[in-house]
Computed example of a mutant assay.
Amino acid sequence: MSYIPVDLKYVDSHEWLRVEENGEYTVGVTEHAQSLLGDVVFVELPEVGSEFEQGNDAGVVESVKAASDVYSPIKGTITAINSELEDTPELINSDPYGDGWIFRIMPDGEPDNLLDADAYSELCSDEG
């Protein structure tokens, strides 16, 4: 079973969210998702200032096996991107909940449909 930090929130498309002190959310893909992808070789990041609806494509993570869209887990505006991923995309594999974060987003309204660690763990085990 993949490591699922209890202090984060999750969505069923396998992104995680961490609320920051200023109200922004840091977003990345879960350990479960990166393990299914395999070795990450490229990350397409959103532009700072871009606005997304919840569930919109906000980027792409490409691995040696597949490409997977990264969805905005909440409605809001991108405030920062992890430009380190442009040169070292493998950070998503080595540290998905830390240095492998993808973007920060300032929410527009209260996020809904977020899962806690237990609900996300159940989702992952239901997928087989």
Rank of each mutant, 00 (worst) to 15 (best):
M1L: 12
P5N: 05
P5K: 03
K9L: 10
K9N: 09
V11E: 02
D12G: 10
W16H: 11
L17V: 14
R18P: 07
V19F: 04
E21N: 11
Y25D: 08
V29R: 00
V29L: 13
T30E: 11
E31D: 15
A33I: 03
S35F: 01
L36M: 13
L36P: 02
L37Q: 00
V40Q: 00
V40Y: 01
V43Q: 01
V43M: 01
L45Y: 04
P46S: 10
E47P: 10
E47M: 13
G49L: 14
G49I: 13
G49D: 10
S50Y: 10
S50T: 12
E53S: 13
E53M: 09
E53Y: 06
E53R: 14
Q54V: 05
N56M: 12
N56V: 06
D57N: 14
V60G: 00
V64H: 02
V64E: 02
A66H: 07
A66K: 06
S68L: 07
V70Y: 00
Y71Q: 06
S72L: 02
S72Q: 06
I74K: 01
G76A: 13
T77E: 15
T79S: 13
A80I: 06
A80P: 05
N82P: 07
S83P: 05
S83K: 14
E86S: 13
T88C: 09
T88V: 14
T88E: 09
E90S: 15
I92N: 00
N93V: 08
D95C: 09
P96M: 04
Y97H: 08
G98Q: 04
G98N: 07
D99W: 02
D99V: 04
I102R: 01
F103L: 09
I105D: 02
I105G: 04
M106E: 12
M106L: 15
P107N: 11
P107Y: 12
D108F: 06
E110Y: 07
E110N: 11
E110T: 15
N113Q: 15
L114P: 01
L115M: 15
D116P: 07
D116H: 10
D118C: 06
D118Q: 13
D118P: 03
Y120K: 10
S121H: 11
S121A: 15
D126G: 04
E127M: 07
G128K: 03
